[in-house]
Nucleic acid binder design. Sequence first.
DNA 1: GTTCCGCTGTCACATCGATATAGTACGTGC
DNA 2: GCACGTACTATATCGATGTGACAGCGGAAC
Lengths: 239, 239
Amino acid sequence: MTAERKSDTRTDTRQELLEAAAALISDAPGQDVPLRAICDRVGVKLPTLYHFFGSKDGLLESVIDYGFESYLALKRAAEPTGDPIEDIRRGWDTHARFGLDHAGFYALMYGQVTPHRRPSAAAAPHAALVELCRTAYADGRLAVTAEEAADHVLAANVGVTLFLITAEEPDLALSAQVRDATIAAITGIAPASPSESATGADLARHLLHALAGAEKSLGPEEIALLRKWLRTLAESSRT
Amino acid sequence: MTAERKSDTRTDTRQELLEAAAALISDAPGQDVPLRAICDRVGVKLPTLYHFFGSKDGLLESVIDYGFESYLALKRAAEPTGDPIEDIRRGWDTHARFGLDHAGFYALMYGQVTPHRRPSAAAAPHAALVELCRTAYADGRLAVTAEEAADHVLAANVGVTLFLITAEEPDLALSAQVRDATIAAITGIAPASPSESATGADLARHLLHALAGAEKSLGPEEIALLRKWLRTLAESSRT
DNA sequence: GTTCCGCTGTCACATCGATATAGTACGTGC
DNA sequence: GCACGTACTATATCGATGTGACAGCGGAAC
């Protein structure tokens, strides 16, 4: 009855164990999977698993590498557009999509909270992002350092993805919103600048904002009345 | 021997267990703590712990509640400034500071990646944030919905905090950068609008950005040359 | 003084990660 | 063809952990 293992195709046992672990982890995001369940799925005993991976942490590390590899494959599938900012934008969406599609992997890749430590395999996509930002910086498209931009993008991207995964009903509109805000910040270009195509509501909101700091030139009653009018203007164009 | 437990102050055993668990979790962020270690610290056996918390998950849930309570206490300590946007800004910093100071708690509170599920105690601070955003919206200070703004702020805030916790050397400047970008996005007000106090570099960068989309009115050679000049301008004011 | 209930301890059990030991298959050199 | 070493796997077991059944101790109520 061990014939099925002997006559198995040439995929070695290590790969099978890796894929079984990946499948089980992907099916049960967050929870930890018993090693024996992985072995049972492959039809192997525990010492075999230990022969290949050494320990549970070793297996998990390999699974994390496995996850990052499929993530990188997904990113490499999209060829660059020539515009580094656009590449960053698409990379953001790819990241969020991957997280939502493979929550189990994503939990291991970006959901571990060990101080001052990240999975070593996380360095590869980070380096790719930094490289992209360096190109953008060299093209004069960034208002901040390439490293600052990369960290900003990664932190916000992970945050939004984790948020959407744990949300009751994930809405990718939030991801797009945070993405545009992030890109606007690192490029220094506001998505809807008040100077051009400014509506009355936009201008009113800007004035309200400016009013929050300096309130010395007018008396409190005037300020209050002005605020009320501006508020009316700011709300006028809302649906 | 057992006298110290009988003559103990009126802090009941449950509270002691909770604090012992909190201390151990705080000391070992990310890793899971054996229940026996918690009991040993208090000088109690396992069934006592089970009497109060029912299971390990029950204890963890209580610890999470404990963490959110101390977090809320920290947030309540800062009284509102009267400006809701400024309150959001300070709330952001409080959040990040708490995460960095209590990584163990933070891992349990915001680092768990279970799809479509969040700790029930997380609802309280989220509701407070939504309430703050509602006030800002009613004052005409937001360019988006109150709920959209709250989700945006929370997602980015958690993302940056997790990023800083796992960073080798956390730099709060990144938190400030993402914070300002987030607030700029939800208020619709660019931190440094190009219309006012615009430098040549800023304008060049804007033009470069606009050039990325529409390249039909000029030939490729002209575009390339124009890009080169603009790039020089954009880099001219950098230190 | 008796009874009842909240709290705690002793003991037992299932599961899990990890290891020691040994058996089997396959290629290699003589 | 045969001994030998390497690679892989199975059996059996250990220590630790989460969980539960049961009993004992204490104070409070009547």
